[in-house]
Design a protein around this nucleic acid. Structure first.
Lengths: 104, 104
DNA sequence: TTATTATATCACGAAATCTCGATTTGTCAA
DNA sequence: TTGACAAATCGAGATTTCGTGATATAATAA
């Protein structure tokens, strides 16, 4: 985990909120995977357009934010058909808490 | 604690190192309070010029960094005569770890 | 008072980040 | 194959951050 990159990723209200919202996807976003007939294991993942709507920023901005959060390791993404579903990487978030508790 | 401001403050290698170094001041810096005859309770605080030397940046940069770290709450400062001694604010650092563990 | 030292503040150009609209790519359906 | 839609990438102007040298302030010493 690159702590500096994680800090940069979290140094923005919208990006911080995205990470928080994804802690409880069903509370914060509409049901996902709607259009697909096949049952897909989304593991709580949420598609870009749902996140964009909640965040109230442009499509390119949210795409950039999600990429940034993924590159920092905080989020994971999985593509199913037309949609890309993002979810939290709980292991990295746990690492982050441990880093602050021990290394910082 | 303003989490965003803390993240911004930690989004820089030198500033992150300063916070880490101040965890063990006696290991990382020369003895402090040397010129003063009066015994001063520095509580592990380190003066700006010692930090500047260790960090290898200009005086204005380190002063700016220390101000930023203090404004974020991560550091505390105390002036004694000509010197300003900076030390960690362990309570805020604990808050930070708790925030990540619970809120994030 | 004057000189010296420690730190803070100012002003600046360079580099990075922010956020957007436009365009491109990828996927599915007709 | 074409059209429609989701998401990623591109390009750009506005804002912020980076790090510096110069200057100002504050405290001590002579």
């Amino acid at each position: 985990m690159d702590f500096i990159e994680v800090c940069k990723a979290l140094s923005n209200d919208t990006r911080l909120n995205i990470v928080k919202w994804l802690k409880n996807p069903t509370e914060n976003f509409p049901p996902q995977g709607g259009c697909l007939n096949e049952p897909v294991d989304l593991k709580g993942g949420v598609c870009v357009s749902s996140i964009r709507e909640k965040a109230g920023v442009s499509q390119s901005t949210v795409s950039n934010y999600l990429d940034m959060l993924q590159r920092s390791g905080l989020l994971l993404s999985e593509r199913h058909g037309k949609w890309t579903y993002y979810r939290r990487n709980e292991e990295v978030i746990k690492e982050l808490a441990e880093f602050i508790g021990k290394e910082l």
